[in-house]
Amino acid sequence: MTQPRRVLVIGGGAAGNAVTVLLRRAGIQVDLVEARADWNATTGSGITVQGNALRVLRELGVGDQVLASGYAFDAVGITTVDGTVLHVQEDARTGGDDLPATVGMQRPRLQRILIDAVRASRADIRLGTTAEAIEQQGEQVLVRFSDGSERRYDLVIGADGISSRTRGQIGITDKPEPTGMAIWRAPAPRPASVVRTDLAYGGPAFIAGYCPTSATTIYAYVVEANRDRASIPPEHFADEMRRLAREYGGAWTEITPHLTDPAQVNYTWFDRLLVEGSWHRGRVVLVGDAAHACPPTIAQGAAMSLEDALVLAELLTTRQDWDERLLQDYYERRIPRVRAVVEASVQIGQWQLDGVRGDVPGLMYRTMIMLKEAP
């Protein structure tokens, strides 16, 4: 009798959770280890989930929960600094005509939905645990964990994010590079007038925007040139975001007064990462932000991670041989699409940094039309 294959997934974010559910559905044994004891279930303000991400979430069996938990819309507005709406652009339904173009939702809510799906899959889950050593042994990988245990696997999937330890452990030296921008994010109550994402370009920041995340909530964000993180004490985060936001009109006059709790405000630099050539070494392969990451200027980070999980799981569950060809085919199928998203996301920010009036709507439209095709 053939011994069932066993896979280790390192990291319980969107990509790691998704690939775990898909592999378990096919009967593959999966261990998932996540460094954080809370499984990131309380972190983050909001997330913009576009149609191609919704397509994957539906495949995972959680699409209806996501739609019920978020706020769906099909357009983006461009406003002046004072809040005057200049243009409303219909968004492409990248997941198909039967799905909304976009769902905004609270990031912790999406994570909890995915966590529940992983638990229901009966994967072996260990929280507060890291992979301390990874050793290739022919067609298996020996992994030693922070709790002192060790186990052999037929495949290891590194889904441990932009600062991935797995990436370095297998000898891939690529590291994220700052793009020159940073973002302030915070949750707030939803003004009645906010029914879609609206973006204001200019003013004291490059971009000021907001996205509805439920019937009663939004997340707001302000993008500026990055600053030395050490120069901004966390206890002043709310003051800094409020200082920038109060220069904007329209719905911002209702949003800004709620930006008072520094613990609810997140400050993050924009980074770029794109591993070229392959995303694997031996029987260890990267997915999601461990292999590629980009600024959220077209809101495709989570979607690209979920698509990685879908494509890798499809190959692993439809091919007999888990070999070099399979893992290279995964990379070659993903890289043109991911590269286009990373380059477009970085280019939009670079135009702003350079003070150049680039064709932002045109670039976004071309990228979204490309993403309508199945990954």
Rank of each mutant, 00 (worst) to 15 (best):
I207S: 01
V265E: 01
Y248C: 03
D239F: 05
A293S: 12
F237R: 07
E240T: 13
G288T: 04
R246S: 15
I232D: 01
V287Y: 04
E247R: 12
M241W: 05
E224Y: 06
D271T: 14
A220M: 05
A215G: 10
D261A: 09
F206H: 10
L259W: 09
T213E: 08
V285K: 05
A215E: 13
H280W: 05
P262Q: 05
C294P: 00
H292G: 09
V222K: 00
D261Q: 08
C211S: 10
M241P: 01
D289Y: 03
G203F: 09
T260K: 11
H292W: 02
P234M: 03
W279H: 06
A291D: 05
W269M: 08
P262E: 10
S231Y: 12
R281A: 13
W279C: 03
R272M: 13
E235F: 02
F237A: 06
G202L: 10
Y219F: 14
A205G: 07
Y267L: 14
R272P: 02
A245V: 04
T197A: 10
H280E: 11
R242H: 10
I298P: 00
E235A: 14
G250H: 08
Y210V: 01
N266P: 00
A208E: 03
E224I: 15
R246F: 02
E247T: 08
I298A: 05
A291T: 11
E224F: 04
G282Y: 09
T213Q: 07
S231P: 08
Y210E: 06
D271A: 13
R243Q: 15
E254P: 03
P296W: 11
L259R: 03
G250A: 08
R229S: 15
G288N: 06
A291Q: 08
A205Y: 02
D289R: 01
T197G: 07
H236W: 04
D289Q: 06
L273W: 05
D228Q: 10
R272S: 15
R283L: 06
E254S: 14
I207R: 03
A220Y: 00
Y267A: 05
P204R: 04
L259H: 04
R227C: 09
P212G: 00
M241Q: 10
F237M: 09
W269N: 14
S231E: 13
